[in-house]
């Protein structure tokens, strides 16, 4: 019989809440309280997430973020700074020992990215995994991904770009010098693509989420069943939001 995993569709939430939910689900799954879980979500207000090892002040124009009402948060996963605006974000939480998850970390990136690639294919977009942590379509990045492994559990989250506003992105992300800003903007425009750019139109968030759901089901040969956060996960989310992701100490720790 086909395995049933949980699907969470939590809509648009703040950066702190989004990162807190991913961590709460990870902890909850590690205690066997919930099945493997896939979540689709968005960010309101728009936000920047930085990698666990990045320096906030090195990567983010904090004054510009405050002026434009853009949140910023440190992730528990490594990788680079991401401006979350026009995108669908996914996360998957699953045991490290699950037979579908390769022990080798890089191989497991490829396997999970396989679900996103199938999801994009369902939208009519051909793409492939580009190690270390990207998915590319026609040579251009359409998805960035980041994974952590703790408490014998894998959390991978990533973006699927629906549209890109490179100028806005570089108004809130730090660039080495103003002098090369224009060059960086044109470089990124050449290296990054989006669903809207490829299809000529932007499907709705729900249409993209449906395609991605099918992508996960096809890749892992499972059935994703709509679910909700448990009471324990809601409590954990509040705790992680208040004690970690919204705090100065966490976000400015590097």
């Amino acid at each position: 019989m086909m395995d049933k995993w949980r699907l969470l569709q939590t809509g648009y939430l703040s950066a702190y809440t989004n990162m807190a939910i991913d961590r709460a689900v990870m902890l909850s799954h590690s205690k066997n309280s919930v099945p493997p879980t896939v979540r689709f979500y968005g960010w309101k207000p728009s936000a920047i997430s930085i990698g666990y090892f990045q320096s906030l002040k090195d990567e983010v124009e904090l004054d510009a973020c405050n002026k434009l009402n853009i949140d910023y948060v440190r992730r528990i996963t490594g990788g680079g700074a991401v401006f979350h605006e026009n995108e669908l974000t996914y996360s998957i939480v699953i045991s490290e020992s699950h037979p579908s998850i390769p022990k080798n970390i890089l191989e497991s990136y490829g396997r999970i990215c396989g679900a996103i690639i199938k999801g994009l294919n369902n939208l009519g977009i051909e793409s492939n995994y580009s190690p270390i942590n990207d998915i590319i379509s026609n040579g251009k990045k359409i998805s960035g991904n980041a994974q952590t492994r703790k408490i014998k559990t894998v959390l991978q989250h990533g973006t699927v770009l629906t549209d890109v506003n490179v100028e806005k992105m570089f108004s809130v992300l730090k660039v080495p010098t103003e002098k090369i800003k224009d060059k960086l903007i044109s470089n990124v425009k050449e290296r990054v693509t989006s669903i809207k750019h490829i299809l000529g139109e932007e499907p709705t968030f729900n249409e993209i989420a449906y395609s991605m759901k099918k992508g996960f089901e096809e890749e892992f040969n499972i059935s994703l069943v709509d679910g909700e956060l448990t009471k324990e996960e809601i409590e954990l989310t509040k705790k992680f939001e208040n004690e970690c992701f919204s705090t100065y100490d966490w976000n400015h720790r590097k």
Binding site: F53, S55, G78, A81, T148, K150, K254
Partner: peptide, 15 residues
Amino acid sequence: LNISGDFFAYPEESI
């Protein structure tokens, strides 16, 4: 010493 960047390290606390 402070080590930062967009790399990955497992476990993260190792840095």
